[in-house]
Amino acid sequence: MKLLSYQYNNSINVGLLTPNGVISIESLRKYTDKELNGSLETLIEEKQFPIIKQIFEKNESSFGESDYLNYADLHILPPVSRPEKIICVGLNYLDHVSEGPDMDVPEEPVLFSKFNNALAADGEDIPKPLDGEQIDYECELVIIMGETAQDVSEEEALDYVFGYTIGNDLSVRDLQFRSGQWLLGKTPDKFAPIGPVVVTSDSINPNQLNISTKRNGRIVQQSNTDKMIFNCAKIISYVSKYMTLKPGDLIFTGTPEGVILGYDEGEQEWLDSGDEIQIAIEGIGTLTNRII
């Protein structure tokens, strides 16, 4: 199933995206005596999804046209807005490693972080930072944790996932490589757009999904998640050995080849005002943002 966070009539809600439109979680309350309102984070933390899924599937035939909202009428929000952690994996596709400057194939996942200030929604404009010029795109599959995970095995790791969404690990390369730490170039305001929806883990295989980026309508990245050096289960297991993953935490799983950084220096055309980036992942949808 696909879930999304949105604002409509000055109210923030969570909804189910269906072929007929969006059903708000709040509208399902009449079919149960359980509390269903709240943010997607609350839904995850309180394990409400099985109830929501059961209610919707049982009563779907009862919904009329007026029960559905038009997706185009909604102001889409980041699926989650206050994760405790935003963890990112670098150099996780072999061809991406080879296009970088003097990068070795990692023997373990390369981890860095972003902060909540970097979150942005589908359709939201991304402002250029005051300092730094070399803005780059990075299409990524993003894991949304559903359970507290501490030192979990690879075999069990995917059981702790709530779902998956699309992310753009926007980067300012001249800030990223200003020092030995990547943080400065990774977490300017709105430099981690995610969405537009979350596909729940029971309805998607994260290990074999086509993933691509378009810059102003032209394909610049195209790959499949089966080309990851470390798959989602390996990443979760590895991270959970060193820090406890919490419900709602986000993990950006790395980008394939085709980033601007990988071009020869004379051919690098960094993102600038007016550039539109569309990231598509099979089974999830398309995330679109514009640089201003």
Rank of each mutant, 00 (worst) to 15 (best):
S81D: 03
E84L: 12
E84W: 00
I86L: 13
I86R: 00
I86Y: 02
I87D: 00
I87Y: 03
C88Y: 04
V89K: 06
V89M: 08
G90A: 15
Y93H: 12
D95I: 04
H96Y: 12
V97P: 00
V97Q: 04
P101G: 00
P101Y: 09
D102M: 06
M103A: 11
D104V: 04
P106N: 01
E107K: 10
E108G: 00
E108Q: 07
E108N: 11
P109Y: 07
K114C: 02
N116L: 04
N116Q: 11
N116H: 01
N117H: 07
A120M: 12
A120W: 11
A120H: 09
E124L: 03
P127Q: 10
P127N: 10
P129A: 11
P129K: 09
D131H: 14
E133R: 12
Q134M: 14
Q134P: 00
I135Q: 03
D136T: 09
Y137M: 10
E138Q: 13
E138M: 13
E140Q: 01
L141H: 10
V142S: 10
V142D: 09
I144L: 14
M145R: 05
M145P: 02
G146H: 01
T148F: 11
A149D: 09
A149P: 08
Q150H: 13
Q150W: 07
E154Y: 05
E154Q: 15
E155Y: 08
E155F: 05
E155G: 06
E156P: 03
D159C: 03
Y160P: 03
Y160T: 06
V161S: 04
F162L: 07
F162P: 01
F162T: 02
F162W: 06
G163V: 07
Y164C: 04
Y164K: 06
Y164L: 06
T165Q: 05
T165M: 07
I166V: 11
G167H: 05
N168M: 06
D169R: 01
S171L: 02
R173E: 09
D174N: 15
L175I: 05
L175H: 13
Q176C: 12
R178E: 15
S179K: 14
G180I: 04
Q181F: 12
W182D: 03
L183A: 14
L183C: 06
L184N: 07
G185I: 11
G185R: 12
T187A: 14
D189V: 11
D189G: 02
K190P: 01
F191H: 13
A192C: 15
I194N: 03
I194Q: 00
I194E: 01
G195I: 10
P196Y: 09
V198D: 08
T200G: 08
T200H: 08
S201E: 11
I204Y: 11
I204S: 11
N205D: 15
N205Y: 08
N207T: 10
N207W: 02
L209R: 06
L209P: 05
I211A: 09
I211T: 05
S212H: 07
S212A: 15
T213I: 10
T213D: 05
K214V: 00
K214R: 15
R215F: 00
N216D: 09
G217I: 01
G217W: 04
R218W: 00
I219R: 13
I219M: 09
V220N: 10
Q222S: 15
Q222H: 14
